[in-house]
Design a protein around this nucleic acid. Structure first.
Lengths: 208, 208
DNA sequence: ACGTGTGAATTTCTTCACAGCC
DNA sequence: GGCTGTGAAGAAATTCACACGT
């Protein structure tokens, strides 16, 4: 048996698949108790071997002959990803998209709580959206520090995203999910994820 | 010199990077005429060699000693991705997110025109959002066929996404961008992209 | 018999390093 | 001198295939 490895030894390409596993497990959980690598592979378009290899990086989660207990596997994957707890998040940029984000309940269902919403625009400042008041950017630093927040979401126009990201990093933010359609230039220890539908559409256009 | 390869010979991992290249090129274009693989690599976090290798799959786009002409490179990448034209798109699901999508101008700036917006909910049906009337799903088939639409975006709740996707495919849709937080089970020739912020947040949580 | 976990084999992806052209 | 394009080398990811536990 393999010892579970040091966190930093595990390639990101595997980490990136773990949330996908959680997605299908959450789907399967509604109708059954156990699953196996073949079933998971078919649902995700991966090979069964790959799924077993991925899990084996972290321990032995299955039983020969039986497969994986779904609830148990979910717990283990949540532990690995550190999502077996809640995280506080700040959101910068309250345009159409920011408002949709504030009104969406899905984040907190998965443990991500948008604690603060910020925008400079006088037209939205002070409004209450999805129960949260829109605050001025001048409150951002103290807010992040008071609640020890490490994750930020950026939903500003592309033109402001870099400046906002620089601010966030200077205030201690460690991970950013940005919806802005521009590449951010940040220190290497800051983890950035891009959610850019144009990139996705351009990708699928190739195959049409 | 390498012959440009058959489309299907080129690995998807390279295709997936092309839209990223376009992103930084659009940024660079504002301030300069040419760039090179080192600069592009630094901005994207890739090695210079990888960028040259990627481009070399499709032809010779650079000049020794000079680098790449930005405008020319943009044109070539757009050709490859088939985004040197416009595409019509339908959007299903007009909740908070769907409305934000309809009001966002960024899609058409990149050539993706949301021609039709559909939802079953009587509360939104008939409304005009971002200049487009919200239509009943019963119009969907004829709409897709009349305008020969191949791309759909799904912004429904997760619980309805699979049923909507099945419908879309049966009407001839070939590519889907879904915001719904569930895995879709579709024929292999349908290209699906997921835009799921929870997956992204769970991914970065690992590194906190 | 079923299905995991895993070394070994294979395939794919990335980097190296340099000839060649501007 | 600067920088591309690219074979060859090297690294990484995936798949194979089977021993072993249930």
């Amino acid at each position: 048996m393999n010892d579970p490895k040091n966190r930093s030894d595990i390639p990101d390409i595997i980490i990136a698949r773990l949330p996908r596993y959680l997605r299908v497990l959450n789907l399967l959980r509604e109708s059954k108790k156990t699953t196996n690598s073949t079933e998971l592979g078919e649902m995700l378009g991966y090979s069964a071997a790959q799924i077993r290899k991925d899990f084996s990086q972290f321990g032995e989660f299955g039983k020969q002959g039986t497969g994986y207990n779904i609830d148990f596997l979910i717990v283990k994957l949540q532990e690995i990803l550190q999502v077996n707890r809640t995280w506080d998040v700040v959101l910068i940029g309250i345009g159409n998209l920011g408002k949709a984000v504030l009104n969406y309940r899905g984040f907190e269902k998965q443990g991500f709580f948008i604690r603060g919403a910020f925008d400079d625009d006088p037209a939205v400042k002070g409004q209450i959206i999805g129960n949260r008041p829109i605050q001025d950017l001048s409150n951002l630093e103290s807010f992040i520090k008071e609640f020890d927040i490490r994750i930020a979401m950026i939903a500003t126009p592309a033109s402001e995203a870099q400046a906002v990201a620089d601010l966030l990093v200077s205030y201690g933010i460690k991970a950013i999910l940005t919806y802005a359609s521009t590449i951010l230039n940040l220190p290497a220890d800051i983890h950035v994820e891009y959610s850019d539908p144009i990139v996705s559409l351009q990708h699928i256009a190739y195959y049409l």
